[in-house]
Design a binder for these strands. Structure first.
Length: 491
RNA sequence: CGAGGCGUGGCGCAGUCCGGUAGCGCAUCUGCUUUGGGAGCAGAGGGUCGUCGGUUCAAAUCCGGCCGCCUCGACCA
């Protein structure tokens, strides 16, 4: 037994980090807070990207690309936006290095000081709206439905692999609309795209909701979000979609002539998900043995491990393995044969379990003789002997079953950890004893929200959209409330 | 930024209290035997102990400065 993954029970945070490293998803780098995304992690992200990108196209969006650098002055244009992001910007001040006259190393050349500092984008609203001003004259130029895949930098004080890194990969959609209603509709549409992706691809159930004012994106009128529950009962914001009103259009003087022949500011949305989703995926499904990936996103869905000793066995076993691989590939399964002779079967079994491959097939001389394979599912203990006959159909069904099973398990876990509480003492007790989600009444004021946060570390994750209205009394102040909101301690 | 911890072959660690010139496990390399759950045996290579300075005949070990990283917290996706 070589590397051991810390159990969730013993230390959940360490377990998470162990999974990331043992599954070879990412590594620390020479730069504090920045990670190396390794091939396994990259392949996973690429599968997420592909699925999302297809969904964006289906909803009428196009990809574009805007600069990494933003003139410092741009950030200052939208007051709330500055306040939200100014504290975490990487600033470029010089364009050249020179040898340090005092001897060792390099220094920024003072002569190369920039006229205006550039910041590395923490998000791209400003640079994009500066461009949109030139694209939009008339209502006929609208809507603009653009997405970009990019990296962004936020100088975080504290980082965690995938969940919060100083540089991260994401997509950011930026749309421009003629009317408020259309922009709100777009905001909600994209939230639904995210929710669909989370649930159908990641097998991760989410709560759709609206953020309170204090949790809103800097510069937004409304922030919609999807919130997921991790296995430790903490909430993770998995995606956000913002209705920006006319805030950025006003800041960047982006007006159009409307159908009534009057000048009007453009209505905007922006929405994004990031590599944080990989962290969400890990903390939703994986177990103490390693990563568990939902089949729809797994870079490798089925791995075939051939088993043999003698040369003549190798020939027939590899031949059978290749044949099975071929049949599965023809059926659209992402499959590979691991025929390396540098590692033994037992080693490979463990390796693929740690890396979360959904299905493992083993083929040895016994199986060849009987026309069988040995099948093991990552989501369940044990293994099963199945016939090579009709295997592609069987595997297809198993992959779907795993996908559904992971979702069902996560949903059941979330429901078991979601409680309705009406009394503040019970609220605190519930959080301390169980964690999880708590649906409770809130009087709608930032003061109450802040006090609860300070006293319990729980925040209002969102005002759920699916939750029925139900009048009640704020558990802290006793003031009237129209509906329950979702509280949790969060990542 | 606050608290805690850590820096010793590629990785994980012991050695530090009681200074005497570096050790263990995994990994790597070679050979033989193995291969249906992380192989066994034999042999081999690889580090001057984060960094700078001090004390000493002698420093991984004692003293001081600096740097870096991790975890937890405040802030955030």
């Amino acid at each position: 037994m070589a590397d051991v993954i810390t159990s969730r029970e013993k230390d959940y945070a360490q377990w998470y980090l162990d999974i990331v490293q043992h599954a070879k998803l990412a590594d620390y780098s020479a730069v504090r807070g920045c990670m190396v995304i390794r091939p396994n992690g990259c392949a996973l992200w690429e599968n997420m990207q592909r699925a999302l990108d297809d969904m964006f196209r289906e909803t009428g969006h196009e990809n574009a690309y805007f600069p990494l650098f933003i003139p410092q002055s741009f950030l200052a244009r939208e007051a709330e936006h500055v306040e939200g992001f100014a504290k975490e910007c990487a600033v470029v001040t010089h364009s050249r290095l020179m040898e340090n006259p005092s001897g060792d190393g390099l220094l920024p050349d003072p002569d190369s000081k920039l006229e205006e500092n550039l910041i590395v984008r923490p998000t791209s609203e400003t640079i994009i709206w500066d461009a949109y001003r030139n694209w939009i004259q008339s209502w006929r130029d609208l809507p603009i439905l653009v997405n970009q895949w990019a990296n962004v930098v936020r100088w975080e004080m504290r980082t965690r692999l995938f969940l919060r890194t100083m540089e991260f990969l994401w997509q950011e959609g930026h749309t421009a609309h003629e009317t408020k209603e259309e922009a709100i509709e777009e905001t909600r549409r994209m939230l639904e795209v995210y929710a669909t992706f989370a649930e159908e691809w990641m097998a991760m159930p989410v709560i759709r909701g609206v953020k309170t004012a204090s949790e809103r994106f800097a510069g937004a009128v409304d922030t919609y979000c999807i919130e997921a529950m991790m296995q430790d009962g903490k909430a993770l914001q998995a995606g956000t979609s913002h209705f920006l009103g006319q805030n950025f259009a006003k800041a960047f003087d982006c007006q159009f002539q409307n159908r009534e022949n009057r000048l009007e500011y453009v209505w905007a949305t922006s929405w994004g998900v990031s590599t944080r989703l990989i962290g969400a995926l890990i903390m939703t499904h994986s177990d103490d043995r390693g990563l568990i990936l939902p089949p729809r996103l797994a870079p490798t869905q089925v791995v075939i491990v051939p088993i043999f000793r003698k040369d003549e066995e190798r020939t027939v076993v590899l031949e059978a393995a290749d044949r099975v691989e071929e049949a599965l590939r023809a059926a659209g399964v992402r499959v590979k044969v691991d025929a390396r002779e540098t590692h033994r079967p037992g080693w490979k079994f463990n390796e693929y379990e740690v890396q979360g491959v959904p299905v493992r097939l083993a083929i040895g001389p016994r199986d060849v003789k009987k026309g069988n394979v040995e099948m093991a599912r990552r989501d369940q203990p044990g293994k099963e002997i199945v016939s090579q006959e009709g295997l592609p159909d069987r595997i297809g069904a198993v992959l779907e079953d795993i996908q559904q099973g992971l979702f069902d398990r996560a949903l059941a876990m979330r429901e078991a950890s979601t409680r309705r509480v009406d009394d503040y003492e019970a609220f605190k007790d519930t959080l301390d004893r169980h964690g999880g989600f708590v649906l409770a009444h809130w009087d709608g004021t930032p003061e109450t929200e802040a006090r609860i946060k300070q006293e319990t570390k729980a925040t209002i994750r969102c005002i759920p959209m699916d939750e029925d209205k139900e009048t009640g009394k704020d558990m802290l102040t006793g003031n009237p409330s129209e509906r329950r909101v979702l509280f949790a301690r969060a990542y």
